[in-house]
Structure formats: structure tokens, C-alpha cells
Design a protein around this nucleic acid. Structure first.
Lengths: 261, 261
DNA sequence: ACCTGAACACCGTTCAAGT
DNA sequence: ACCTGAACACCGTTCAAGT
């Protein structure tokens, strides 16, 4: 995935009917005003479609993503999308690929100076977490899309990454067996932690139906005294600290696996 | 789950126009032939709808579950379902509730003789795993349905279970803080492991598009030598052993958390 | 080459009508 | 009380037609 196609018109709101603070209509409607030649209309291509889909999911949720709505957001009929994407399923897969690709482009993940395998796994874990937190409502796709092969475990779903992961370990004194075992525990760890973290995040942004979150629900909770008592504590966000702690534990465990080969 | 309502016309093809090998029309048309009184027609109720939906998901996958198809499977029009279930979303939630409920009914999870908290967590973890493996294609719903409150973390999604979990620990020498921390690590652990386990399982049953699984794909893998070399090893199913091992680790970690309160 | 209008086979859901 | 037929507002996707 060449970083060259990182050239995007803008990461912000590009919804068709947006009007900015100065009362100017946005780029899509500029044609009407004639201050831009129609031929300059932003080209429709696969990357722009996928990016817009991602944008839509983060704003409005996966369930509202529709080929027709996506088309409208791009100022185009739904049918036009099929010239660039085979279908909706493939679009969802492409979204996952973009998320995975973002991680590859992250300069903090694959540092030029090769250091220890611990540092390598730390950077990788934090990189995945950063992607997950940046796209909380899209990230579950990384887990739910059926994997293409049994050795492509979410959230490391590309041959590219799995190769990087495995060779990163075998080049650092891991036996094949130890590397494979570490791959499995590392992916389980990431999936569990990050899915839970974005799911609590997603609830905040959620589809509005987040009930029971006020203070007056003590009545309904009265049958569950322990939950009631620990409610405030359970609501606290310790996600970051827990992630670090659990990652530390995992690395210790992997150290043992590496040693006893 | 009362075994009583297991009386179904048949688990096979019940599509409206199905005709069996002998040229007889199927059960749906039996009324016409008069060999069963119409009044004996199996009653439609919420529980039967939810069970049939679960059945359908396990057989054909979540994406093919449709109110209309579900109705057909029950020998009824789609619209009839709305007398028992408010809508499709609520149906999916009800499915999750059944899965969670199955676990409560499992006699091996909450054993009468109360033993150690370690035993309690072991039983609970294995109970959740059993449910996940029994319903691999439905289990992801437990993770993907938006949680009703931040303290209801998948896969323990009922107030009932969270109360049982937390009080089970606080009754056994855990501080509130330690119990809450254990709840968080326990749920992350279960979600990561089980989701990955059913996802590799789901791929086997998958929607047919499982490519790259033969032996002749060495060509495509040649750019990824480490993946190629470890392929067989990564395909091996160590899920059960890994689960036990990781659970053991988790319990040790929780022991520390409990001690240092 | 890329976009569109019209159409097809489906969805979830409502509602008045039947029994 | 429970089920249905017909209808509505949407889907994803195809295809011949436009530019």
C-alpha cells in the first residue's frame, strides 16, 4: 500500500450539503456558482469511496452505511460506485484493509532503528490501539469480517503484517514454535482489549438508545447490590492503564515461551 | 431452555414449496391433506421464534437471517412475528439473552457446593466457552450488540451475571477495587480468546468464500517466507490448550491483584 | 471511460382487514 | 387474540443507455 495515495481532499466534513461559517457553499456545489470548472469535480476513485465510507461509519454507524447514501455523500448515484468497487461486501473488506494499512504507514510502529523484540511488540500493540481508538465504530469490522485464512488472525489481518510479526520474532531468537504461540497470544490479547475499549467508546457515541445511564436507575439495580455499589468504579475508564499492564504481562509470558523452546 | 419445545416439524428444508422424495408435499401443506388437525399447529411464541432464529444463524449465517425467511421457517408470514417480537433488532438482542441464559442453566457453571473463587472463575470461563463453541456463528452477536451500560461488558452481558461475578469475588476476600479490576481482565480475556476461536471455526463453516486454503497457494505466499514456513503450524488447532493456559495465567494475575489490595 | 435511469428482487415494518 | 394481504419506503445490484 503506497503512502503516495495519502493525498486526500480533506479529512473533515465533506457532506454534500455542508455550508461553512462564512455562508459559502461547499466544493460540491461550487459548480453551480461557476467559480470552479465542472471538469475539476473531485474524481471518484476507490480510495475516496473507501475513505468516505469510513467517515460515514464513524459519524453515523455501520448500520446506516448504504450504497445509496454513500453515493449521495459523494455527490453521485449509488450505481457509480460499482465502477470502482465490486460490491458492498468488498467495500467493507477494503475498509479493513485501509485500517490495517494506516498502521503500516504509522512511523512510530516500524521504527527505522531496529531494537529489541519487546520494543517491536510494544510499538505494534500501541499502533493497533491507536488505529482502533481513531476509528472506534469501524474497528469491529476488523474482528467480524471472516478471515481469509486460519493464519490471518484479527486484528493482524494481512499477510504483510503476519510476515512482519513472525519474522520479527524468529529473527530475534524465537523458535518457529515460540513465534507461532506468541502470534496467537498477541492477537487474542489485542482483540479482547481493543474490542472492549471501542465498544464502551462506541456506546458513548452510540445510536441514542443508551438508557440506564442516568443516576435514577438505582431502583432497577436494587436487586443487584454489588453492581450498584461498584457502579461508579466500573464506569471509570482505566482502559489505557489496563492495556499497558496487560501488555506488560503478555510480554513477560512471551519471554518465558521464548526461553523454554 | 425447556427440551419440551423441541417438537418441530423437521430440521431440514422447510421452504414453502419443498416436495420430498416420495413426491409428498411437506408439513406445511399437511393441513390440506387433513392428516393433522389445523388446531394442533405448533404455537408461535417468542421463545420458539428466538430458538428458530438461532438455529438459522448456525446453519446459514447471520447475514441470511431475515424476518421473511424466519417466518417461512416457522410456517408463518413474516408479519406474524411482530406480534411476539418488537422488531429485528430486539430479536437479535433476544438471541444474545438466550445465549447468556443458556449459561445460567448450565449445571456445571454454578455448582451447588460453593468452592474456591478460582474454581468459580474456572467454571464460569469454561461455561462461556461451551456456549461459544455450541453457537459459533451466533456468539459474535454477544460482542457486537451495543452494551446497555458501561458496566455490562461482553461476554457477561446481564446484570444477573455481573452481580454473580462481582459478589462471587467480594464474598471471597476481594476488595471492591480488586473485584472490578478482575471483572475487566476476565471479560477481556474471554472475549479475545473466544471470538478468535469461533472466528476460525466460523471460517470452516463459512459462506463458501474460503479461498487460499489448499496446498497450491505457495506461489502467492512466496513473498512471505516466514508465513509460508509456519503455515502448517499456524493452522494447528491449539485453541483448547491455549485457553487453559491463558486462563491459568489470568487466575495467577488475579491472585496478585487480590493480595495487593 | 465513467456516470445514470429504470428496473428487479429483495428487505423491515405498518396497518386495516380477516378469522 | 392471533394471523394475513397489501402497501410503503427502503435496500443491493444489473443493464442498457447516455455523455
Amino acid at each position: 500500500m503506497p503512502p503516495a495515495d495519502e493525498i486526500r481532499p480533506g479529512d473533515d466534513d465533506t457532506s454534500p450539503s455542508a455550508i461553512d461559517a462564512e455562508g459559502q457553499v461547499d466544493a460540491d456545489a461550487a459548480i453551480v456558482l461557476g467559480d470552479a470548472p465542472p471538469s475539476t469535480r473531485v474524481q471518484l476513485d476507490r480510495r475516496r469511496i473507501v475513505d468516505t465510507a469510513l467517515e460515514h461509519i464513524e459519524e453515523s454507524g455501520l448500520s446506516t452505511l448504504t450504497m445509496r447514501r454513500l453515493g449521495a455523500r459523494l455527490g453521485v448515484e449509488a450505481m457509480s460506485l460499482y465502477h470502482h468497487v465490486p460490491g458492498k461486501e468488498e467495500l467493507l473488506d477494503a475498509i479493513v484493509d485501509v485500517l490495517i494499512g494506516d498502521m503500516r504507514a504509522d512511523p512510530d510502529v516500524l521504527a527505522a532503528p531496529e531494537t529489541s523484540w519487546q520494543d517491536f511488540l510494544q510499538r505494534l500493540a500501541h499502533g493497533v490501539r491507536r488505529v482502533a481508538l481513531a476509528h472506534p465504530r469501524s474497528f469491529p469490522l476488523v474482528a467480524s469480517r471472516p478471515p481469509e485464512a486460519p493464519w490471518l488472525r484479527p486484528p493482524l489481518r494481512s499477510l504483510d503484517w503476519v510476515e512482519t510479526f513472525l519474522s520479527g520474532l524468529t529473527d530475534n531468537g524465537f523458535s518457529d514454535e515460540a513465534a507461532a504461540a506468541s502470534y496467537r497470544s498477541f492477537t487474542s490479547f489485542l482483540l479482547g482489549h481493543l474490542l472492549l475499549e471501542v465498544s464502551t467508546l462506541g456506546a458513548d457515541i452510540g445510536p441514542l438508545d443508551v438508557l440506564d445511564d442516568g443516576d435514577g436507575d438505582d431502583g432497577e439495580l436494587s436487586q443487584f447490590p454489588t453492581v450498584l455499589r461498584l457502579r461508579a468504579r466500573l464506569r471509570e475508564d482505566h482502559a489505557a492503564a489496563e492495556f499497558e499492564e496487560a501488555l506488560e504481562e503478555l510480554l513477560e509470558r512471551i519471554t518465558l515461551v521464548r526461553a523454554q523452546q
